[in-house]
Design a protein around this nucleic acid. Structure first.
Lengths: 225, 225
DNA sequence: CCATCAAGTAACTGTTTAGTTACCGGCTTG
DNA sequence: CAAGCCGGTAACTAAACAGTTACTTGATGG
């Protein structure tokens, strides 16, 4: 297209050479590092994660990792932020206010449980971050506003349920959410010690389904009038 | 590097120094290492814990640590075992079968919550062990039989409650225990991220008391007829 | 066609770490 | 008292680690 002397105009490519374009791909390298880091931090925690291991898993090297993310701690924070954005985004799509209050809460419980089940790395990252008393999360400005929406929506649904007379007056939005999250988080994140000491394989589909029903049952009976 | 006088190098001073006899105390040193290790592993996890830090915290040195416990992994397992023995021993003293079924379950819920609250290092060690998929706990023969008692006692109490018509027929002992443990564990172990993202300090006495009541409420309403 | 800059590689560095070794000194016992 | 055992100290070592530097490769604009 452009041949010469066009001043100020960025041109896309003078040569086609499209088959080689994939060689250098900053965006893909960046994404690969982030994904590899997510797995490495989830599997080994902050103290146990190895920068060399992340680079190797991503199919690149340490130089790129430091180039894109600064250092190990900043990379870790990035991983944590992405994990939170992931669940909160999926949660928003639920629109729990569209159904009846009872169905809305049940849906939130089911969603949370299934999201935890499908994203063990998220649970693991939470565990690591709490071991360190939210040392890195606290520094993140980005995540503070992400959660007001959840509590707001939950408050509305509970209000509606109280008006309709199906929920008790003392039902608290934060308590309801913590109840749902507790039951899912503990069962899954502690499945290894629990399975060992109680001699039952908690990850078996039969037990998983029973616990899913249990979570919905417990959550609803605790707020129903 | 050889010494000039072969016998003269070792000297023995024949001082009584009886006031120093307490200096050497194997049992105390051992206990100090175990306690220091508990704190270090709880605060930093397996990957983050430092053997030097444990020795320093115990007021001794690495040589003694390796002498008494073999290596870092065996010391960690020892710490974990002691933590489990601690809670299960205290739990046994409850005798939840002595009261009415409803009171018995309520007592277990209260005990578990308060034990978790007073032993944050236990929660932390559980978290670390689960991060590693119970890698070390699995090797421990000692802990397997420790837990059958808990489930046995719980089964009896539930049976009695069902006979008396106060509990639903579907109430399951493991589910009841997991419910109690979930609600306590998650609230406390994840308090740092939760306080940060929801902008409420969960460790405040007001909130702690509210959650204690909530645990008992949720547990009982979920099994009452 | 060459100057420039970004993507990417690999070897290196200073420090930290788990684990070891050499040694010390008091106590017990034959 | 001497032999040696046991509780204890401190300096050491080899490996692993986070982070850096020197360099190569390739695309692009002038």
């Amino acid at each position: 297209m452009n041949d010469s002397g066009e001043h100020g105009e960025k041109k896309r490519s003078r040569r086609p050479s499209q088959e080689r374009t994939a060689q250098r791909d900053p965006e893909r390298t960046r994404a690969a590092i982030l994904e590899a880091a997510t797995r490495e931090f989830a599997e080994n925690g902050m103290g146990g994660a190895r920068v060399d291991a992340i680079a190797e898993r991503a199919g690149t090297n340490k130089r790129m990792l430091y180039h894109y993310f600064g250092d190990k701690e900043q990379l870790y924070l990035r991983v944590l932020e992405e994990a939170y954005v992931g669940i909160r985004t999926a949660e928003r799509a639920l629109h729990i206010g569209d159904r009846s209050p009872e169905e809305g809460i049940g849906e939130l419980a089911l969603f949370t449980w299934r999201y935890f089940l499908q994203h063990p790395e998220f649970l693991s990252l939470l565990g690591t971050e709490n071991l360190h008393r939210a040392r890195w999360l606290r520094q993140s400005v980005r995540l503070k506003e992400l959660h007001s929406h959840l509590i707001g929506e939950l408050t509305d649904v509970l209000e509606q349920g109280k008006k309709q007379g199906v929920f008790i007056e003392t039902a608290d939005p934060l308590h309801v959410y913590l109840t749902i999250a507790s039951l899912g988080y503990f069962y899954l994140s502690n499945q290894y010690t629990l399975s060992t000491i109680f001699g039952r394989d908690l990850i078996e589909p039969t037990h998983l389904n029973a616990w899913e029903k249990h979570i919905v049952h417990v959550t609803l009976t605790s707020i129903k009038r």
